[in-house]
Nucleic acid binder design. Structure first.
Lengths: 256, 256
DNA sequence: CGCGCCGTTGAGCCCGTTCAAAAAGTGTGG
DNA sequence: CCACACTTTTTGAACGGGCTCAACGGCGCG
């Protein structure tokens, strides 16, 4: 048996084959054998309070994670005190896999937005996983490539979109990602999004004050409401028009 | 033997083991055996004129490429006519590998900035490459993860940086990447960068007019000069300060 | 020479920022 | 259940970085 319990507790850890978020995760379309292989590589099941740091830029790049429950965000701190959020991580998502560049240090930080539970793997085990279970390696590559195209969509958003469009796009994306985790996505119009206006601002490259005003305006147009962490979208198609990020919306839509 | 010559000519294709850009490429740290395996998977060696389209968003996602010579850029067209450049591709770089999302269509476009020569591979052969040569698969994953962190750095740039900083950062990055391809990088202070101000604008999320004014100002501060495609940087460290993108610079520096 | 692409310059405007302060949650302990 | 502290949201007023629109200049190329 593996050494669990470094921070988390073994008895609260779910076995991979019984895991409810697995259908969304790294190990989704895999055989029983591959799933137990994955489980054998798991090094810890770690539970953290909201606001905890998971890793920081500059720290050694040794672990990778699957988020079991809660929300995580990846961000970069800038010299002038600014912060850019790079990605929001939802249950089932894989994160923390970063190319090794020279010094083996993290280039960005990860923090728990809510209380979270993580499945922890050693980065150094990945090569062995590759060797023993080709499908796991292929899947890791696919996930990394997927994160890359998502990052590219966000690049286009930050580079070329107005405040209104950026916010609409971010909320639409999160709305759809959360809906995906529901049993009947098409009929869900209200989802819980545990963000503050400041976090939205840091993800969209705007100030909190301007996020407030812009969301007010979106509300005035009956595109969405967002109160006490509940995002309500009466007509997702109208929000998509607002986001003006044509084709990507169809991608997200196709996954529903 | 494989069917070459679809667009390019077999006789101008270099064998992988003799290839000058290989040291920078996907197949860099590999054994002789793996290199010839890579070569056996190459489907074409394709030469294109400056301005040619390599693939377009919406087209089927079937090929991947190594750039043998010239410059390529990846970009996304937006509904309102705007354009965001996602990445500049230099000789030896791998590109065109995109996660398959539902419909198997490209999410962005690629275009030749200069005359280019490409080594073309079939996307569908990648799995076989994985199976037969584990190291090639690991390397592909590493490269994809590397592209992701580069995209994240650009996200931070577009989200949180001033026009001056964005331009300084882009030019510093390209300066260092081109220098890497020289025999004695540390002593090179002038490199050829085949960009127009409009392309710089589309990469930095600015207008061409404002790029012009900002570069003028950088020139006035003796940070750099850029005339007839020649970028001269008297003191890269000062440019790095201007770019204000602290740690990433050290990454690029470490690779020199 | 003439055409087209690219770079340069000017004037005015607007989106988003900055600074500041108040109001409205939200959680905690008594 | 209230008092208190802290976080988050809301609102106002003024500023400014980057945009828009427009015209001109320069250079390469057929």
């Amino acid at each position: 048996m593996k050494q669990f319990g470094e921070h988390g507790e073994i008895d609260r850890a779910v076995r991979c084959e019984d895991c409810g978020v697995r259908k969304l995760a790294l190990f989704q379309p895999l055989s029983q054998e591959e799933i137990s292989a994955a489980q054998s590589f798991r090094r810890a099941f770690r539970e953290l309070k909201a606001g905890s740091s998971i890793f920081r830029q500059g720290s050694p790049n040794t672990e990778v994670y699957t988020l079991h429950s809660g929300w995580v965000y990846l961000y970069q701190n800038l010299a002038d005190g600014g912060r850019q959020i790079l990605r929001f991580v939802l249950p089932g998502d894989f994160f923390g896999f970063q190319a090794d560049v020279g010094d083996g240090k993290r280039l960005h930080s990860a923090r728990a937005l809510t209380p979270v539970a993580l499945c922890v793997f050693n980065r150094s085990d990945l090569l062995a996983m590759f060797k023993e279970h080709l499908e796991l390696g292929v899947r890791l590559t696919w996930l990394t490539a997927y994160d890359e195209i998502v990052a590219y969509e966000h690049l286009a958003s930050l580079g070329r979109r107005s405040a209104e469009e950026r916010i609409a796009y971010l909320l639409l994306e999160l709305f759809n990602r959360v809906r995906l985790r529901e049993q009947d996505p098409q009929h869900v119009h209200t989802v819980r999004i545990p963000l503050t206006q400041e976090l939205i601002a840091d993800a969209c490259g705007l100030t909190q004050v301007h996020v407030n005003r812009t969301m007010k305006s979106l509300q005035g147009k009956n595109i969405l409401t967002f109160h006490s962490k509940k995002l309500h979208v009466p007509d997702p198609d109208r929000l998509a028009v607002m986001a003006n990020h044509n084709h990507n919306f169809f991608v997200l839509k196709a996954m529903l």
